[in-house]
Amino acid sequence: MKIVVAGGTGTIGQLIVAAGRERGYDMAPLARSTGANVLTGEGLDAALAGADAVIDVTNTMTLSAKKARAFFGTATSNLLASAQRTGVGHHVALSIVGIDNADASYYAGKLEQERLVEASPVPHTIARAAQFHEFAAQILAGSNGPFALVPRTLMRPVAAHDVAVHLLEVADSAPTGRSRDLVGPRDEVLVDLARKYLAHRGERRRAIEVRLPGRYGANLASGDLRGTDAALQTTVTFDEWLAEQPTHP
C-alpha cells in the first residue's frame, strides 16, 4: 500500500512516515523539498500518482483567521483536485478536537479545511486529535525574556507518535467521513505543562497564564479541546513524554 504524507517532513509527518515504514507501507513524504508544493499545485500529480491514500498534515503557524483560511483553503483544494485527477482512494485530513464553536484565528483555517474535504467527491476521513504534548514547548518558543505568556487552555494532550499511528490505521481502513476523535489520557491545563517543561529544561523563565479575548480564547478556556467520553484515549501522559525529552535549553 502506498501512502503519501502531505507535510511529510514536518514534526508529525516524519513520525507518520517512520511508523508506516516500520509497518511495511510504501511511504512517500510530500513537501517542497521533495518537489511538490501544496500552495501552487506544482508536482502534486506526480507525487500522488499510484497512491492508495493521502494523509494531509500540512500546517502553518498563524493566529490570523484570514491567513489560516487562505493557507488551508489553498492547500486542501489543490490536494483534493490532484487526488481526484490521479484516482487516490482515500484522503485523510488531520484536524483538532473540539473546534466546532471556534471559527476564529487558527481554527478558522482548520474548519475551512474540513468543509472543503466534506464537500469533495474524493473518498475521505477527517481525523480529529487533541493538541500534542509538544504544544507547550511551541507556545514557549514564541516568548522571549523572563516571562512567557500562556493562554488559558483546558486540554487532554496526546503523544504525537500515537496520533501518527492512528492516522495510519485510518488511512488503511475504508473512508468513513469522520473517525472517532483521539485524545490523551488526562485532563491538563496548558500553563501547568509549560511550567513543567521549563523546570525540566532548567530554564528560569516564568510561565504566566492569560485569558485570550474573543471566540478563540473562549474556546481554549472552555474545555472543548478535551473532547468527549466518546473519544479514543491513548495512554502516554505528558509527564511520561516529558521524561524522554532533552533537559538542556
Rank of each mutant, 00 (worst) to 15 (best):
F135N: 04
E118P: 11
A136L: 12
L63R: 01
A159P: 12
G217Q: 02
M155S: 10
H161A: 02
A130E: 05
L39T: 05
S64L: 05
T74G: 15
G89H: 05
T234F: 00
I126F: 14
L44Y: 03
L198D: 05
Q14V: 03
L63I: 07
G20P: 14
W241H: 02
D181W: 13
G177N: 13
H200G: 11
G10A: 09
R156A: 13
A194L: 04
H166P: 05
G41H: 00
L232I: 03
T62E: 10
V54L: 03
S143P: 09
L212T: 02
Q84T: 08
R69W: 14
N144A: 12
L94F: 11
R32K: 06
V150E: 13
S173I: 02
G214A: 11
L111D: 15
L111T: 07
S95L: 08
A137F: 08
V4M: 01
S82K: 11
A102T: 06
K2M: 07
T40N: 04
A136P: 13
P213M: 01
R128T: 12
P146C: 04
N78E: 04
R85L: 09
A49L: 10
G177L: 08
V5I: 10
Q84A: 13
A141S: 09
S143F: 07
E203L: 12
A102D: 14
R23E: 14
E112H: 14
T62K: 08
V5M: 03
A6H: 06
V5G: 09
K196N: 12
R152K: 07
E240T: 01
T60Y: 01
H133G: 12
D172W: 08
Q233C: 08
R180G: 15
A127Y: 08
V117Y: 04
Q113T: 09
R195T: 07
R195A: 03
V236W: 09
A83F: 02
T235Y: 00
R186L: 14
V150T: 03
G20F: 00
G109D: 09
A129V: 11
